[in-house]
Amino acid sequence: MSSKLHCVKLNDGHFIPALGFGTYKPKEVPKSKSLEAAHLAIDVGYRHIDTASAYQVEEEIGQAIQSKIKAGVVKREDMFITTKLWCSCFRTEMVRPALEKSLKNLQLDYVDLFLIHYPVPIKSSVDESPLDEKGKFLLDTVDFCDTWEMLEKCKDAGLVKSIGVSNFNHKQLERLLNKPGLKYKPVCNQVECHLYLNQSKLLDYCKSKDIVLVAYGALGTQRYKEWVDQNSPVLLDDPILCDVAKKNKRSPALIALRYLFQRGVVPLAQSFKENEMRENLQVFEFQLSPEDMKTLDGLNKNFRYLSAEFLADHPEYPFSEEY
């Protein structure tokens, strides 16, 4: 793994770079931007790239990785690539074909990390997200513990190095960890986590089980209109955060990332701008004082930008629990 990035050891012995590059793309952004951003991210030093079949940019990410490998910029083993199983592929016979499709799109023989995207199953259909007459997702009843067994088989088949989950609450993690015949524990839980939603209880729980917390929305999300209430507070404009940034002679974004990193969280940073990508990599170059950390702890509001309301009618909807 690149010496440029610090790494965190996972419970299966593999290592995850301590800062990742996020690749979610809203409909209004052309796919060419994702390709360009992935090229830039690898050039400036990111070795951990997080994507998902639901983002519909796996092909672009794959093209960027392959072109950088061919150009000798990186070797495959330098890269840590995460993708995710979408909710409409929970049925046991669909898991491996879904992963194989992602591998084909990414032009890879294996991914480093494969996650269950949400604990909520959606009915499978040719259209990845079937809707009812009111435009709501048609939900399913598959037990994610059965889906997990198929992820374990994908790991045994060498299609993936590590397996984990995303958007699980502590009760759902507990159920998975107590599953009879569990072969592999999830190595991580990827959740929304930032200064306004610092996930301290979930983080403590995950640490107690040797599960790494990976943070999406680490900078308060990209505020895409499709998912985020445009009246919600802009995290990086927070006056207290800006004061701490000024004091440390760093940008608010860097302080927000460093805060997560110092708590043992692996943040995913997303940007389409080279200067921001480069700046985010400076997260390892300074330290926040205990006083600064305490001040930043005080910004928590348990405020969620991405509440996934499209899944709220399902009993497995994860965000009804406190953590």
Rank of each mutant, 00 (worst) to 15 (best):
Q282D: 15
N178F: 07
T23W: 00
P130H: 13
S2P: 07
D78A: 06
M150W: 01
Y216M: 04
L5M: 07
L202T: 02
I240W: 05
P121W: 01
G158F: 09
R258D: 11
P97K: 15
H48M: 13
I16N: 03
E192C: 04
A269F: 13
Q107V: 09
L182Y: 02
K136H: 13
F310D: 07
L159Y: 14
K153N: 03
V95P: 06
S102K: 12
N178V: 06
A218R: 03
I163K: 13
L108E: 04
T51I: 09
K33D: 14
S200G: 03
K136W: 06
S271D: 09
P97A: 14
P267Q: 10
G298A: 15
W148K: 08
E174W: 06
K84E: 06
I81R: 14
L85C: 13
K155H: 13
Q262I: 11
M79W: 04
L10W: 01
D297C: 06
E152D: 12
Y55N: 10
K27V: 04
I65T: 11
H14I: 02
I42W: 05
R304Q: 07
S88T: 13
L213H: 00
L40F: 02
Y184E: 14
F80T: 11
H39C: 05
K25F: 00
G164F: 01
S32L: 11
K249Y: 07
P318M: 05
G13M: 02
P186I: 12
A253F: 05
F90C: 01
Q107F: 10
F137H: 12
T51W: 03
E174V: 01
K183D: 03
K136T: 03
N167M: 04
P17T: 12
D12L: 09
P239T: 14
S88G: 07
W86F: 09
L151E: 09
N105R: 11
R76I: 01
V187K: 05
N231G: 14
Y323H: 05
D292H: 13
P267L: 09
